[in-house]
């Protein structure tokens, strides 16, 4: 009995998928892989890549924190934000990265508050994650072959 997967955010249903073989998620205690017949589980998610595979087909998502629940072979991902790799606008992510970088460089000046600094760091983290996810997908598209997950 394979897994059914549902990824939802507060603003939309990002993806629903049946017959998934394995799902790898960025859990707050480290990466975790969910296989069919997993025990009921509830965990928090961090920033990271979420990958699921169905046969040779692989789907990659950039996830920004949230929750994951497993119950009766149903995996529900409640993410604060989620984007499929092919939806990511690489140029925009790159621009965001540069903006965040510039702001972090200014961050050593005394007039920048802690919250601004924290916000810039979070923006940086987000931009890097999106770039990484998009990059992975491009590489795979170039070779045409599915890659082992993880690393």
């Amino acid at each position: 009995m394979p897994l059914s997967v549902e990824i939802v955010t507060a603003e939309r249903v990002v993806r629903t998928e049946e017959a998934v073989d394995v799902l790898i998620a960025p859990g707050s205690e480290g990466q975790l892989a969910i296989l069919p017949r997993h025990a009921p589980l509830m965990t928090t998610l961090e920033y990271g890549e979420l990958v699921f595979r169905r046969g040779a087909e692989e789907s990659v998502f950039a996830i920004e924190r949230g929750f994951l629940e497993v119950r009766d072979n149903r995996v529900t991902v409640l993410a604060d934000a989620a984007e499929a790799a092919d939806e990511i606008d690489v140029d925009r992510a790159e621009q965001a990265r540069q903006r965040a970088e510039a702001r972090l460089r200014e961050g050593h000046e005394p007039d920048m508050g802690d919250t601004d600094l924290a916000r810039a760091r979070a923006a940086m983290q987000r931009a890097l994650l999106r770039l990484r996810v998009a990059e992975r997908r491009r590489r795979r598209a170039a070779t045409g072959a599915p890659r082992p997950v993880g690393g």
């Binding site: 507060a10 859990g27 025990a39 009921p40 589980l41 509830m42 965990t43 928090t44 929750f67």
Partner: peptide
């Protein structure tokens, strides 16, 4: 639920994250 569920890191910490989301 109490018996079978696994919580990571633990129920209280998951709760801590979940409640503000719920209010939002």
């Amino acid at each position: 639920l109490r018996r079978e569920y696994l919580f990571e890191p633990d129920p209280a910490r998951v709760f801590e994250r979940l409640l503000p989301r719920y209010v939002e």
